[in-house]
Design a binder for these strands. Structure first.
Lengths: 363, 363
DNA sequence: TTGTAAGCGTTATCAC
DNA sequence: GTGATAACGCTTACAA
């Protein structure tokens, strides 16, 4: 380290010239030199709640401003073992189909003094590579909206990196989780639709590997069986609009008739299904067939759709996730894994018939 | 630093136990101890293209794997002055209304070995706070999709942090920029619509402060005037669906008649406008009135809308942005500011009449 | 309250 | 090729 000789304070302009000439960055040492104090005094001035005299503080701050000094986070984190960075791991598709979630998460983290390091993946398989990077960057924690194996979770524990799983159901894993109870929501949805007289259900689900999509399907199928309704065919889509279009055509072919109601794994597919019904097949929605989505994204409530759907309390979930994460970072050690489960909110919309018709006609 | 005594190599298990007991992280020093080499040898093994013998390399890697060692990026960046982190500054609204842009950018950066540190802002005013953070984190560069003052740009230059402005028009500023030529696209759009016989234009723009929105308006107004068409009233919305609905009502009130065509600053507003026309006002689109959007987002091409709009080559723009940024980081010094301008692609859709009717009737 | 000095975990520059 | 050793810019005992 450079000697911390305490000279009577060099002029700001002089020091600025030196820095510029040497082509280096402004350090706390430069500030100390100009302010005429020790380097550690400068450091203390930038630490909230440290003991510094008013006089010292002012001289340091003046010098710091003059030099446009800003502490180097890398150097700080090296010793504090905190980066104030939280990684968010998210798939390309959840970003496209539910951008609000990422936006909310990022905002809630920012509000708590954390920054979001974004990792997007095309395929869930890229997780290995991403985790290697995550370890390198020494992030304070990871918020994952992606599939994780027990081995991955175990590695988080070993490395003592806090992990919160967002909106994924990691069955039987002891891991912090914030999610919406898709299973229960789907069950309740089926109950309500059945009460309105719907009997033949058909399902357009998300990708088979996706845990959220799976839960939604499971809940619906579970309740359909429980109620003794006719078996519901399932079409596995990939969350995009065209899956909804293709799904409806396929399901009708399989059943050999128009189903009473189609439950879709997200809104984009539901809107595809509505459009296919109305525009390709001239089926009136909801009088001839009901369609239900999931997520209540922006466009789903626009006049051309007014989709019947389930809204996830994204804002609350983001708050819970950020709180949980910050708690874990503070705790800095063994804490019981916590699961915060939220209920989905039903959005009535205009694409499902929710009351029994005057006279229920048997087909 | 700890002494680098060269003992004959300690056993992996033993060293693991020590680390666990001391509760510290695995360092290159631990790996060196187990592999029976110097710490600097370990460092070299993790630097691509460094000169190490095969034998040393293998011993080091074996020890590293056994200890699950991963280099600490903070320590590395302290000396290399590279963090491999690029900040992306983006407003809440562009994230919601154009999530694909962020997704593409993040992906292109990842592909080039850079990570994206995400900064979202609610209001463009938060930029000050964000920049302070950006300097702290010593990011290698910043991609900004937000308004910047000349003072901000100057600070980037002073701090020698590469800056690429994405899809914003910073008039008269010497700054790297990747954007779509909104002005020209709007002019061309008006020309085409005028050729199809539209005379009375009306405009629903984005927020007045937003530079992209402003360019779109300017281009349209410019060409409308040039063609000697009737003055077009402007409604300033805020990029959301309801602005489109409100905008149409307001514009019709102002003109005292239904305009021939409404040009909207983005797709969400255009879809609002289409819905308001069809469902509130019973105006047929496009036979009685044309509506044009901008961006060609996901939902705009769905059957219920099939919006006439302008597509920005987002993928290409993201590639250009990432390339430009990486080039700047490599160059590490004075480079001429570069502006890469892309042309918007016209999407015909079904909400605008694009050919002159058989007989053009004067009102 | 303040200054001294010892790290944090790397990379880079040397001799050997 | 390899190992000492000096940075990088900061925080934090500890001594004064």
């Amino acid at each position: 380290m450079r000697p911390t000789t305490l000279q009577p304070a060099i002029s700001l302009a002089e020091q600025k010239a030196i820095i510029l000439q040497e082509g280096r960055r402004v350090t706390s040492y430069d500030v100390a030199l100009v302010a005429g104090v020790s380097q550690s005094a400068v450091s203390r001035c930038f630490k909230p709640g440290a003991s510094v005299s008013k006089k010292t503080y002012e001289r340091v701050m003046k010098a710091a401003e003059g030099l446009e000094y800003i502490p180097n986070a890398a150097a700080r984190s090296l010793i504090t073992r905190r980066t104030n960075i939280v990684a968010i791991v998210v798939s390309h598709s959840s970003m496209l189909y539910n951008p609000a979630a990422l936006s909310e998460l990022s905002q809630q983290l920012n509000r708590r003094g954390k920054r979001a390091l974004l990792f997007t993946m095309q395929h869930e398989g890229e997780i290995e590579q991403i985790l290697t990077d995550v370890w390198q960057f020494q992030v304070d924690g990871v918020i994952a909206a992606s599939k994780l194996t027990p081995a991955h979770v175990e590695e988080f524990r070993r490395r003592q990196v806090p992990l919160v799983v967002f909106n994924r159901h990691l069955r039987d894993m002891d891991v912090n989780t914030v999610l919406c109870d898709q299973f229960e929501a789907s069950r309740a949805l089926v109950s309500r639709l059945a009460a309105a007289g719907h009997r033949q259900f058909a399902l357009i689900g998300g990708p088979e590997q996706n845990s959220v999509a799976r839960e939604r399907l499971r809940g619906a199928l579970d309740r359909i069986e429980e109620l003794g309704l006719p078996a519901a065919p399932v079409f596995y889509g990939c969350f995009d609009y065209s899956s909804g279009v293709a799904g409806l055509h396929e399901l009708i072919a399989r059943i050999g008739a128009v189903p009473d109601v189609v439950i879709c794994g997200n809104d984009a597919m539901a809107m595809g299904c509505v459009d296919a019904a109305r525009q390709h097949l001239h089926i009136d929605v909801p009088s001839q067939m009901s369609v239900v989505g999931c997520d209540a994204v922006e466009g789903s409530q626009w006049l051309s759709y007014e989709l019947t759907t389930l809204r996830q309390p994204l804002h609350k979930m983001a708050i819970a996730t950020a709180d949980l994460m910050c708690g874990l970072i503070e705790a800095d050690g063994e804490v019981e894994a916590e699961k915060r489960v939220f209920a989905a909110q039903f959005v009535e919309g205009e694409t499902a018939r929710l009351h029994a018709p005057r006279a229920v006609l048997a087909a």
